[in-house]
Amino acid sequence: MYEIIFYLTAAVTVLAAGSILIVRNPIHAALYLVIALLALALLFFLLGAPLLAALQVMIYAGAIMVLFLFLIMVMNLRPTQEQLPFLSAGWKVPAFLALILWLELLVLFFGLLPEPADETITVIEPKVVGESLFGPYLLVVEAAAILLLAALIAVLYLSRKKRL
């Protein structure tokens, strides 16, 4: 049962991501992306990472998607007039390359990884993650904070009407 849910969710994720490739309307694409992200959050949960699942919903599906939508709204984008990939002439080479890449990864995973020793799913509690974050990774957290601050400043700067 557990597995079924998992694979189903995985299928949803992949399908949603694939749909982004082919839809014309940006709004639709955004919706597909939300679906993919939410599905991914479920995958995280199923894999035993509840904290990350929650974060995924909040940050990606919540915040980032809003940004996308907001931008699409502001720019007033119409459904794109571009030739869709499958109808255009240039789709074969990328598709081929992507296929090869996927195969290579497949080979990598099957060829190199040992069989899992433990069959049960172990849930890693948020507490553990938090201890790890504010323990050995404290400095990285600080760095991330600074990165965010820098991004914030950069965005503020770029959005000014009169730049220096």
């Binding site: 994720t13 992949v14 991501a17 982004i20 992507a98 990864l105």
Partner: peptide, 14 residues
């Protein structure tokens, strides 16, 4: 890997 490849395809094609 599927997700990654799809993303890559999107970047390359759109």
């Amino acid at each position: 890997a599927l997700l990654f490849t799809l993303g890559l395809l999107i970047i390359m094609l759109r």
